[in-house]
């Protein structure tokens, strides 16, 4: 059972705080964030990297936390919905989601915001098709996506006008 009990020491910068812990080597980043640290805004939907509900930001990139070992985040920077909400970085997009009712049950929403923010920050030309393509790794079972696309498009247009 050694592979089940082996531990590793990690130091992860989570939402700006440095966290040191000794954890099972097999612990995934989603479980680390949720059950070890207690930040429950990151949701788990499939644990096989398809639904995207567990998407977080690792060194600035959106990443599936269910497919990432916590040990792989050792020495790196992790941001979750809690950190991004508190910093105000995604407030414009959150307001657009609010206006458009771009969330129903809300289970996919934190991850959807993180993926959409990556697109909005990418400095590429943004169209509805581009948004659809970019968000195609995040399953939403409630909204039918239209309102989510509207919200992201609104922010993209506001960004363009601001340029």
């Amino acid at each position: 059972m050694s592979e089940l009990t082996q531990t590793v020491d990690v130091c992860i910068t989570l939402n700006g705080h440095s966290i040191k812990a000794t954890i099972p080597a097999r612990e995934n980043l989603a479980d680390f964030i949720r059950h070890r640290i207690g930040l429950m805004g990151t949701n788990v939907g499939c644990e096989q990297g398809i639904c995207g509900a567990c998407t977080i930001r690792l060194n600035g990139d959106s990443v599936r936390s269910c497919l990432t070992l916590a040990a792989q985040a050792n020495g790196h920077t992790v941001e979750t919905i809690e950190g991004l909400t508190d910093s105000g970085e995604i407030s414009q997009l959150q307001e657009a989601f609010h206006r458009n009712n771009a969330a129903q049950c809300g289970y996919c929403t934190p991850a959807m915001l993180i993926t959409a923010t990556e697109l909005l920050n990418s400095k590429t030309e943004i169209s509805r098709d581009k948004i659809r393509e970019y968000l195609s790794g995040n399953l939403c079972r409630c909204t039918g996506y239209h309102a989510i696309i509207d919200a992201v498009e609104e922010v993209a247009e506001a960004q363009n006008n601001g340029r």
Binding site: R34, M40, G41, T42, N43, V44, T80, I81, E82, T85, Q94, F97, H98, R99, N101, A102, A103, C105, G106, Y107, T109, P110, L113
Partner: peptide, 17 residues
């Protein structure tokens, strides 16, 4: 807008797990 929707958008939705 739904009175409770912003809570989900901020990641405050409290689910069973």
């Amino acid at each position: 807008p739904r009175p409770n929707v912003m809570s989900f958008i901020k990641g405050h939705g409290k689910y069973l797990d």
